[in-house]
Amino acid sequence: MPRFLLSLSFALLLTAARLTAAAVVQVHVTDAKQSSVADAVVSLIPLDAAPVFTPSTTPVVVAQQGQEFEPYVTVIVPGTRVNFPNQDNIRHQVYSLSKTKPFEIPLYGPGTEQSLLFERPGIVALGCNIHDWMAAYIVIVATPYYLKTATDGMARLVDLPPGRYRLEVWHPRLSGEANREVTIAAGDTAQQSITVILKPDRRIRRAPDGAGGGYK
């Protein structure tokens, strides 16, 4: 192959690679006081084409551990099955009155596990009817591009095809909505900072552990 042809094809390849090269969006979520916000769900919903996502084949787990749901916020795509293993030595109930997925799992014992399939996108607030302080959220997003912010408030979304997206941020204490439209060029590493307004942290202070904790 003549040298120039080689060069040409390499250049074309490069161009093709650049055209289809995945971009990166680094989102930083802060609150009104410019503090980093953890447990914020950041999702990018493609606007140019219908998003394609496949549910995880291995079940996602929201465990009952130390009379708390663990983790506090779980992000899944529709069609994902979530397991609720009871890892405590007491019984728990799980319910949600959310419109997305109203359900009740009656009291079930330690060591057992219940599972549910979440088919519709939306937010499902989980509660335990006998432990008022137990609360967790399952956020079902219809996009493969999502992530929960870490304690530094950062979510690094990778492998993003170029195009227009709606960047959505959700948090259990979010007041109002937080989203914006972003356009991502191929191979870009974009920085996005989003400031959200949070309601005061109103989680129920857990009652002193009377059921055995005192005898540990």
């Binding site: 319910y95 949600s96 009155l97 959310s98 607030a125 989980l126 509660g127 335990c128 008022d132 302080w133 137990m134 609360a135 309601k199 109103r202 989680r203 129920i204």
Partner: peptide, 9 residues
């Protein structure tokens, strides 16, 4: 009333 707290239902 909350379902669960602090989600006002």
């Amino acid at each position: 009333f909350y379902a669960p707290y602090p989600n006002i239902f």
